[in-house]
C-alpha cells in the first residue's frame, strides 16, 4: 500500500513523504471530480498542481485538509496520509488537522479585524501563547516571515481589509503560519495580484519552503517552473503526470502534458 508511484523515481526511496494520497476519488453528487489519484508530497519540496480549469486541482487540494467536508454533496474515498495517519479515518480531529495543514485561498480573505487580530486569531483559539508577550512575539515573527512586517509594523491596529490586495494575501499567509502548520496549501494565491505583488509572494514561498511543506495550485506555468521542485499535471480529474518540475517542463512523458504546457489544451 505504501509503495510510491513509479513516476517519483529513486528520490522517493530516500525521503519519506509528508503527505500521501492513496487511491483518492472525489465525487460531487454524481460528478466524479477526482479519479483514483496517488501522489506523494514532500516536506522539503514545493509541489505545484497544474492543469486546465475544472480538472480538479482545487478539489484535490481541499481534500488535503478536509475543507471539502463543508460541501454536503462532496464525497471522498481512498486514503490521504499525513505522516502515515489517514486523515479520513473517523477518529481524526478535523479542527486539529486544519491547524496542522493550513490553507491560503485564491482571493485574499482577511478577517474584518485589525491586522494584529488577524494574525493572533489562530494562536488564540489554539492556546499557543500563554501570555500577551508571547502572542506579540508570534504576531511579529509571523508578519516578518510573511515579509509584511516592515509595511504594517506602525499600524497593527488598523483593519486588515484596508491593506492592498498583495498585502492582504501576505497577511493571510502570516495568519496561516502563525499557527505553526506543517503543511501549507495554496490555491492560486497570486491570481488576484499584479506582477510585483506576485514576485513578493513567490519570494516568500521560496523563503518558507525549507520550513513548511508547500503545495500550490497555479495556472501560470512560469510560476510553477520558478517556485516548485515537483509538479503534478491534472487533466479531467486524473493525475496525468507527476515528477520533478524540470523534467515535466523539458521532457514530459505524456502527450497530454506536452500539449498542455505548449498551450494546445487548456
Amino acid at each position: 500500500m505504501n509503495s510510491a508511484p513509479a513516476e517519483t523515481g529513486p528520490e522517493a526511496i530516500q525521503a519519506k513523504p509528508k503527505m500521501a494520497a492513496r487511491g483518492v476519488n472525489v465525487f460531487y453528487g454524481d460528478n466524479h471530480a477526482i479519479k483514483d489519484i496517488d501522489l506523494d508530497l514532500y516536506a522539503d519540496k514545493v509541489t505545484s498542481l497544474i492543469g486546465p480549469s475544472g480538472c480538479g486541482k482545487s478539489t484535490f487540494l481541499r481534500c488535503l485538509n478536509r475543507m471539502n467536508d463543508t460541501i454536503p454533496i462532496c464525497h471522498v474515498t481512498g486514503e490521504i496520509l499525513l505522516e502515515d495517519e489517514n486523515i479520513y479515518t473517523s477518529g481524526i480531529d478535523v479542527v486539529q488537522l486544519r491547524a496542522r495543514v493550513g490553507m491560503v485561498f485564491q482571493k485574499p480573505n482577511p478577517f474584518p479585524k485589525s491586522i494584529y487580530d488577524n494574525v493572533a486569531y489562530g494562536p488564540r483559539i489554539h492556546g499557543l501563547a500563554a501570555h500577551r508577550t508571547d502572542l506579540d512575539e508570534i504576531v511579529t515573527t509571523s508578519l516578518e516571515k510573511a515579509g509584511l512586517w516592515q509595511e504594517v509594523k506602525d499600524r497593527l491596529d488598523s483593519s486588515g481589509t484596508a491593506l492592498s490586495g498583495g498585502q492582504q494575501q501576505r497577511l493571510c499567509i502570516a495568519r496561516a503560519i502563525a499557527v505553526n502548520p506543517e503543511v501549507i496549501l495554496m490555491d492560486e494565491p497570486c491570481s488576484a495580484l499584479d506582477p510585483i505583488a506576485t514576485a513578493k509572494i513567490e519570494a516568500l514561498i521560496d523563503e518558507l519552503s525549507g520550513r513548511y511543506a508547500i503545495i500550490i495550485v497555479t495556472h501560470s506555468m512560469q510560476q510553477a517552473a520558478r517556485i516548485s521542485r515537483k509538479t503534478a499535471f491534472f487533466h479531467l480529474g486524473e493525475m496525468v503526470e507527476y515528477g520533478d518540475t524540470t523534467e515535466i517542463f523539458t521532457s514530459p512523458k505524456e502527450d497530454r502534458t506536452r500539449d498542455y504546457i505548449t498551450g494546445r489544451i487548456g
Partner: peptide
Amino acid sequence: SIRDAARGLGA
C-alpha cells in the same frame, strides 16, 4: 470566504 478563512486556521 470568511468562514473558509476561519476553518482553514482550525476554528
